[in-house]
């Protein structure tokens, strides 16, 4: 059973990354709440990472390219930091808006 793959793994995951970028952008731009936008931004980011990582795996016999891997690990951690900053700004905005509503 089995045999050669019909389609190379890198191409499957690369295309999946492209679809995720599209889905994330849609979620980011459609009318929705701030928290959902932060979430969609993370989906765009991970789609780009997956795309980048997949292009580093085009020649499976040599293994995955370590340079994209290192850049992606850096990127994942920075994306988390950006998410934390976005969440903090969002909560601060909610606090300020709530205060303004009481004054009014």
């Amino acid at each position: 059973m089995g045999g050669d793959p019909i389609i190379a793994s890198w191409l499957v995951y690369g295309c999946c990354g492209a679809v995720l970028v599209g889905l994330g952008l849609f979620g980011f731009m459609r009318p929705t709440t701030t928290l959902r936008r932060v979430l969609a931004f993370n989906i765009v980011g991970s789609g780009i990472f997956l795309l980048f990582g997949a292009t580093g795996y085009r020649v499976p016999s040599t293994g995955a390219d370590p340079v994209p891997q290192a850049l992606i690990i850096t990127g994942i951690v920075v994306a988390l930091a950006a998410t934390a900053l976005a969440v903090a700004l969002m909560l601060a905005l909610a606090r300020v808006s709530a205060g303004r509503d009481e004054d009014a």
């Binding site: 690369g14 295309c15 990354g17 492209a18 020649v59």
Partner: peptide, 15 residues
């Protein structure tokens, strides 16, 4: 998607 499927399958990379 169009850009990804057009990539050469034997990308050299830096491995």
């Amino acid at each position: 998607l169009f850009a990804v499927q057009g990539l050469p399958p034997e990308g050299a990379g830096l491995t």
